[in-house]
């Protein structure tokens, strides 16, 4: 088991090293893709945290949008710098999350799912309707860039990338700690058997709210990062189609482990870029992939990991993982 842990840490360090070197070896266009990739990772992992309680929402991308709008408004109209607006955007989205969670908690399962869609749409439509302050259907433009701090010009892709990478790593670390903590275990126990959880003193409603609010915070951070990179946002980039893509990442990667969604974002981002030549046929291709995954590999790509570990002779590690209390977790889907 210790061997396994050491290997994991080495793996993570290696990955960070690769991510740190990568931007210098690719064209600038791809650095932009990488920035979006990191933002999506924060989005996907925070989504999965909420999903560990069994609550699959359809409003997570909207929450990211709320963070984007919040950060943009604060930067544009109050002139506050990014390092202030980003966490404040996160806090704002927490409040938004708290606000909408009440009707949501009245429902479970599929009802919850669709209600979150409707509530999310309500928020998105308010961005369309209220030209002041949200800018209406055209959205907001001229969002102040992060600007120049010291010798570094964050308008450039690579500096922004490293800032995003740092923020992403911090967020992932926090999310990972939460996932592994007692709170995280409480979340999973609610999914397993909410009646049982209630009987041992876990206030199910309160924990579902926790999960939702925590997830919202990180969605807000992701939104702030997005707004200040794009410089302009509009309501359409936060619509249902984007939410469905988020679900695709989480389903393709798997949601039983922490790394699953990250794998999903990575694979789908690659596939998205590689399939650009498909043009209008691309959504059809993804539709087939999605259906294929759900029928033939509902556990997602992460479910292949134990198979690989076994394949490459590391039987003990795979077994040890399966015997850990949180190890052989069922996929949330």
């Amino acid at each position: 088991m210790l061997k396994h842990k050491v290997l994991s840490i080495i793996g993570v360090v290696a990955l960070i090293a690769v991510m740190s070197i990568l931007p210098f070896f690719v064209r600038e266009y791809y650095v932009e893709i990488l920035i979006i990739f990191l933002i999506n990772v924060i989005l996907a992992v925070s989504y999965r945290l909420i999903a560990t309680t069994g609550d699959w929402t359809l409003c997570h991308v909207i929450l990211m949008g709320a963070g984007a709008y919040a950060s943009a408004l604060m930067a544009k109209y109050f002139g506050w710098p990014f390092f202030m607006t980003a966490p404040l955007a996160g806090a704002t989205v927490c409040l938004v999350g708290l606000g909408i969670v009440y009707p949501l908690l009245r429902t479970v399962g599929f009802g919850f799912f669709i209600t979150s869609l409707a509530v999310g749409e309500f928020i998105r439509l308010s961005w369309i309707k209220f030209h002041i302050p949200f800018g209406g259907p055209r959205g907001m433009i001229d969002i102040p860039e992060v600007g120049i701090i010291g010798p570094i010009d964050f308008y450039e892709a690579i500096p922004y990338y490293f800032m995003t990478l740092a923020i992403t790593l911090v967020c992932l670390f926090i999310l990972y700690r939460i996932d592994r903590s007692r709170i995280g275990k409480a979340f999973k126990s609610i999914y397993e058997d909410d009646i049982l959880a209630e009987s041992i003193g876990i206030n199910v409603g309160r924990y579902r709210t926790f999960a939702f609010v925590i997830g919202s915070f990180f969605a807000g951070i992701a939104g702030a990062l997005l707004a200040h990179r794009l410089g302009a946002i509009d309501p359409h980039i936060f619509a249902l189609d984007e939410m469905v893509y988020l679900l695709v990442w989480v389903i393709v990667g798997g949601s039983a482990t922490f790394a699953g969604p990250i794998i999903g974002v990575a694979v789908m981002t690659l596939l998205f870029e590689w399939t650009r030549p498909l043009l209008e046929w691309r959504p059809l291709f993804f539709g087939i992939i999605l259906i294929g995954f759900l029928i033939f590999m509902p556990g997602g790509l992460e479910s292949l990991i134990p198979k690989f570990t076994r394949l490459f002779g590391n039987r003990k590690a795979a077994q040890a993982k399966a015997e850990q209390p949180g190890g052989a977790e069922k996929s949330v889907v």
Partner: peptide, 17 residues
């Protein structure tokens, strides 16, 4: 339920294209 919903989301893209 979720798997069925998501799979038909895939169908949506297919039919639209």
């Amino acid at each position: 339920v979720l798997a069925g919903f998501m799979a038909t989301a895939g169908l949506t893209w297919i039919l639209q294209v």
